[in-house]
Design a protein around this nucleic acid. Sequence first.
DNA 1: TATGAATGAGCCTTCATTCAT
DNA 2: CATGAATGAAGGCTCATTCAT
Lengths: 184, 184, 184, 184
Amino acid sequence: METAARKNRGPSAGPDNRRALIVAAREVFSLEGFHAPLSAIARRAGVGQGSLYRHFPDRLTLIAAIFDENIASLEVIVDRESSTLDDYLAEILEQALVSSALIDLMMLERSDDRIQHLRTRITATTGRIVARERASGRIRADAATDDVVLAISMFAALIARVPEAERRHTGDRAWSLFHAAFAP
Amino acid sequence: METAARKNRGPSAGPDNRRALIVAAREVFSLEGFHAPLSAIARRAGVGQGSLYRHFPDRLTLIAAIFDENIASLEVIVDRESSTLDDYLAEILEQALVSSALIDLMMLERSDDRIQHLRTRITATTGRIVARERASGRIRADAATDDVVLAISMFAALIARVPEAERRHTGDRAWSLFHAAFAP
Amino acid sequence: METAARKNRGPSAGPDNRRALIVAAREVFSLEGFHAPLSAIARRAGVGQGSLYRHFPDRLTLIAAIFDENIASLEVIVDRESSTLDDYLAEILEQALVSSALIDLMMLERSDDRIQHLRTRITATTGRIVARERASGRIRADAATDDVVLAISMFAALIARVPEAERRHTGDRAWSLFHAAFAP
Amino acid sequence: METAARKNRGPSAGPDNRRALIVAAREVFSLEGFHAPLSAIARRAGVGQGSLYRHFPDRLTLIAAIFDENIASLEVIVDRESSTLDDYLAEILEQALVSSALIDLMMLERSDDRIQHLRTRITATTGRIVARERASGRIRADAATDDVVLAISMFAALIARVPEAERRHTGDRAWSLFHAAFAP
DNA sequence: TATGAATGAGCCTTCATTCAT
DNA sequence: CATGAATGAAGGCTCATTCAT
C-alpha cells in the first residue's frame, strides 16, 4: 500500500514535502496550466492540503519557487564561460511554459516583492550573457540588454503558446528573426 | 448606472443586448482576463444571465464575436491603399489584449472551426499588407508572410502583458526590433 | 425558409397549435420523460412559448390533455361489444408511459379537479369491461372493479419502467400473474 | 435544530456526516421524490455542499447508499429461519418509497455497476425466501422467483405512489391479489 | 507538524414564466 | 392572438481555505 509511506512523519518530512510539492506543481502546471487546482498538486505530491499551505501560503509563492529553480539553471549556463546566447535560449525553450509564465508574472505583478527579486536576477543574468556576446562580436555593439530581455520575453511567451510538437520549429523561426534584428 | 432600465424590454432588445454584451465582454475581459466570470459580463451589460447564454452559448462563441470585430477593423485598414504595416501594427497595439488573446486562441484551439476561420482571415489580411510593403521596398523582398505573422503574434502577446501605461513605449521598442529584422 | 410557415397566422391558428402542442408533448415526454423542458415541446410543435402557455397554463394541464385522449381511446375499445379485458390491457400496454404517468398522477394529485375527472372516467370505463368479463365467466364472479383497477395500475407502472424492448415480454409475464389472481 | 453546531468539526465529523447525509437524503427523497435538490439534503443534514460531494460524488451514489441499507435489512429478515414472504413484504412496504425507487432504478439503469450489484443481491435474497415458501407449501410449487420479483416490483411501485395514509390498506389489497396468483 | 475532511462562496447552466411587439 | 427574446431564480459542482485531530 502506498498509504504506508504517508502518515504523519513528523517535522522531518518538511523539506521532503517541499521538494515533492514543487515537483508535483511543475507536472500539474505543465499539464493543466497555471490555474490548475492546488488540491491536485497536493494530491500528486502525496501531501496533505494543509502542508501545501504551510510551505506555500498562496499560489504565487509556489509559482515563485518554481521560477527560482529555473532561473538558477539559467545562471548555471551563464556561469559557463563558453556559453552563448543561443545556449541560453535553448534552455529557455526547454523551460517553455514556465519561462513564459515567469515573464507574464514579471510584466504584471510588478509590485510583488518576490517577483521583483526574480526580475532582478533574470535581468542580471541576461546582462552577463549579452555583454559576452557583444564582446565576441556575435551581436551588435549597441544591442541593449533591455532589448534582448524584451526579445526573450516575446520568444518565451510565444513558444509556451505553441503545441509541444511544433515548439522547436517555431522557436527556431522566431529566434532567427531576432538574430537578424541583433546582427552586427 | 446601467442597472437603471431592467425589465422585460421585449424581443426588440435583442440586438441591443448583443451589442451590450460584446462591449461588456471587452471591458471585463480586458480588466480581468479571459477567465473572468461570464456572470460579471452579463451584469455589466445589464442583461440577464439567460440572455447571455442565448446570444453566446459558450465562452468561446463570445470571444469569437469580439475577435470578429477586431479583425474587421484590421481589414478596414488594409483596404485603405495608403496603409502601411506600421498602421496595421498601431491598430493591433490598440487592440492589445484582444489581439493577444486571439493569437493565443489561434495557437491553442487549432481544431475549433470558429477559430480556424478567424485564423484564415487574419493570415489573408496580413498577407495583403505584407505584399504591399514588399512592393514598396519598406521591408525585405524575401520577408515571408508567415514570419510577419509570427512577429505580430509575439508583439501582440507582449503588449497585452504590459501594463497599459507602458504599452506604447514597450510596443515601440519591440516593434523596432522587428523593423531591424525585416529591414531591406 | 421554414420561417415562412410560421409567423403570426392570426386567431385561426389556435386549434392547430393546440393539436400540434399535444402531439409534440407526447413525443417529447415519451423521449425524455415528464420532466422534459416545456420549451422543447413548444419548439417541436413549431409554436411560440407564449402560445404554449395560452393553451396550457401549466404542465399538469398539458399532461391532462394527453391523458384525455388516451382515455378516450380506451373508451372506444370498451364501446366495442366484443372487446375483452385483454384487449383493454393491450391498449394500456401500447400507451405504456402515458398510462403509467396517468396512474401516478391519479394516485398523487388526488385533489386536483382535472385529475379527479380523469379518475372517474377511467374507473367507469374499467367497470364496464370488468362487468362484461364477469358476465362471460372469464374472471371470477367476485372480482371487484377496484381490484382490477389496482392490478392495471401496477401493470401500467411496471411496463412504463421497463425498456421498450422488453416491454411486451414483461407485460405478458405480469399480466399472466393477474390472470391467475382473477381466474374463476 | 440541526443548524446549531456548524463549524469545521474536523475530519472526525466524517462518519457522522455520512450518516447524517443518508438520513437526510431518506427524508428529503421521501418528501420530494428522487429529483429533490441535493443542496436541500446537505442543508438538512447540517453539512456543507462540498462534504456531500465528497461522500457521494453523484446522485446515484447517494441513492445506492440508501438502497444498500434497505437491502441489508431485507437480508436480516430472510436470515431469520422463521420469516415468511409476508414478513418480507411487510418490510418492503415499510420501505415503500425507497423500495420502489430501487426497483425503478433496477429497471432503468441496467448498465450501472452499483445497480447491477444491488439487483444481484435482491434477487438472491428473494430467491431464498421463495424457496422456503415453496418448501413449506405456502406458495405454488411452480412459482418462479422471477415472477415473485416481478410481483414485488409492482407492489413496491404501487405503494410508493399511494399517499401514506392509505398505504397499508392498499398494500394489503394488492398483496392479496398476488396471494391468489401464487396460491398452491 | 502533517493530514485530509469540512466549509461555503461563487460560477456555470437550465428553465419556467413574462411581456413587448 | 402568436411570437420568441428577456428575465432571474435555482441547482449542480468546484475549489480555495480552514482547522480538529
